[in-house]
Amino acid sequence: MTESCGKTHKKIETPLARAKGLGSAKSGYKHWWMQRVTALALIPLSVWLLFHLPNIFTASYAEAQLWMSDPWNAVTLLLFLWAAFYHALLGLEVIIEDYVHCHVGKPVMLIFTRFLFLGAGVMAVYAVLKINFA
């Protein structure tokens, strides 16, 4: 018995056929590995950002621009954005795969999430570059 999109489909199959399903995707390692790599990267990057954030929030636009014109600050911020968006995307993909079982809704949501995070990531990077080079 399989369930998808609220519909129940009764299949006559042996328990072993059901357990084997479509077989192994022979992938999943990279997703798991990158989730850990980005998590590791986010430890120093988040500490760095939290250290600087209070000053940036209270700074004027000119002061913030000056702070970002420092190559170290700009590069570290770009690295943080990469790690944060990548890590969040991987996490959200796992949540969708965990809880959404509809064979139409799931791929649609996975694709939409990729677009959303790619778009948001590119926008964030563009903003940093624009402030830096404007």
């Binding site: 192994s24 995707a25 022979k26 992938s27 999943g28 997703h31 798991w32």
Partner: peptide, 8 residues
């Protein structure tokens, strides 16, 4: 090695 068999 499968996103569901193991990595769930």
């Amino acid at each position: 090695e499968d996103p569901f068999k193991l990595y769930r």
